[in-house]
Write a protein that binds this DNA or RNA. Structure first.
Ligand SMILES: [Mn+2]
Ligand SMILES: [Mn+2]
Ligand SMILES: [Zn+2]
Ligand SMILES: [Zn+2]
Lengths: 140, 140
DNA sequence: GTATTATTAGTAACAGTTACTATTACTAAT
DNA sequence: ATTAGTAATAGTAACTGTTACTAATAATAC
C-alpha cells in the first residue's frame, strides 16, 4: 500500500543545507540559500520537507517564544541559548549528568558560552488527567 | 513630562478577570468573557493592556511552542505544564530548593500533578558576545 | 518505456498579533 | 465647574509566519 517517500533533489538539498549550517535557520533562511542553486524551489516545499524530516527524526524544531520557528539538523541531545539582542540561537552541549543548582548553572554556562546569561525557561508537557482517561476510553 | 497611566474601566476589568481565573487565558478568551459585561471592548484593547500589565510586572506571558500566547495573573515563581492533548496549561509550584535529577523530577511531577509527564523543555537566553560588546560601545 | 502517484511550484487562505486613526474620556490646571 | 491636554479606546486594516489547495511534474516500480 504505502509507497516509500521519494528522495527528490529538493528534499536532498534541504537536508544537506540544514546539516551543513550551525545557525538553526528558519524555513525562510533555508529557502533563500537553496534558491541560489535551485531558483524555482518554493517556500512551501521547504516547510513541508522540514516538517517531514522532523517526523522522521532527521531534524528538530527549535522554538523560542516570540520568534519564528527554527530548525536544527543536529538531533543529538543538547540545549539552546537565544540572544535577546539579535535573536540568534547557539548550542550548549553539556556532558554533566549530575544535577546542578540554578545559580551554579548560570555561571557555568556564562563561562562555557561567553554569553551574558540572563536566565532559563523550563516548561513541562504531558497528558492531563482528563485526556489520559479519554484516551483510555477510546482504546476499549 | 510623563503622565501617569490612567486606570480605565477596561484596564481594571482585564486585570481583575486575569487575576480571578486559573486557566492562563489567551487574549481572545479574556476578550470573550469581558465582553459579557463590556460588550464594546475591542480585542486590541485587551492585547494592549495585557502587554502593559506584563511590562509593569502585574502579569506574565505564558508561551508554549505552537500555541497561541497565554497570560498569567499569578506572577509568583512557578512552572507550567501544558497538556499535549487539549492544550491547557496548569501550574506547578515547587518549593524544593535543591536540584534534583531529571528522571526523579518527572516521577515527582507525575505524582504532584496527576499528569502523564512526557518531558520537559529547557532553554536559555542572554546576550551573545557580539551584542554584549555592541552594547558597551553604545554606552561610550 | 509506461503507468502510477508522491511531490512540486505557485498561489491563496488562514490565524494571531500589531498598527493606524478618528473619537472618547480621564486628569490637572485654571 | 470649565477647559485644555493627552492617554486610551473602538473599529478596522495591515502584517507575518505558516498551512492548504491544485494543476503540473517527476521519481519509482514494473
Ligand atoms: Mn542546536
Ligand atoms: Mn501559572
Ligand atoms: Zn546577539
Ligand atoms: Zn488535556
Amino acid at each position: 500500500m504505502n509507497r516509500k517517500p521519494r528522495f527528490t533533489k529538493q528534499r536532498k538539498l534541504i537536508l544537506d543545507e540544514l546539516k551543513k549550517v550551525k545557525t538553526h535557520p528558519t524555513a525562510q533562511e533555508l529557502y533563500d540559500s537553496i534558491r541560489k542553486v535551485l531558483p524555482n524551489i518554493s517556500l512551501g516545499t521547504v516547510y513541508r520537507n522540514l516538517e517531514l524530516l522532523c517526523q522522521q527524526g532527521m531534524a528538530k524544531r527549535v522554538e523560542f517564544p516570540e520568534a519564528q520557528r527554527r530548525y536544527d539538523g543536529d538531533v543529538s541531545r543538547h540545549y539552546h541559548i537565544q540572544c535577546v539582542g539579535c535573536g540568534k540561537v547557539d548550542d550548549i552541549y553539556v556532558n554533566e549528568t549530575r544535577a546542578i543548582r540554578e545559580d551554579e548553572l548560570i555561571r557555568f554556562l556564562g563561562i562555557k558560552t561567553n554569553y551574558d546569561v540572563h536566565g532559563q525557561k523550563i516548561d513541562f508537557f504531558g497528558l492531563c488527567p482528563e485526556c489520559k482517561s479519554r484516551k483510555n476510553q477510546e482504546k476499549l
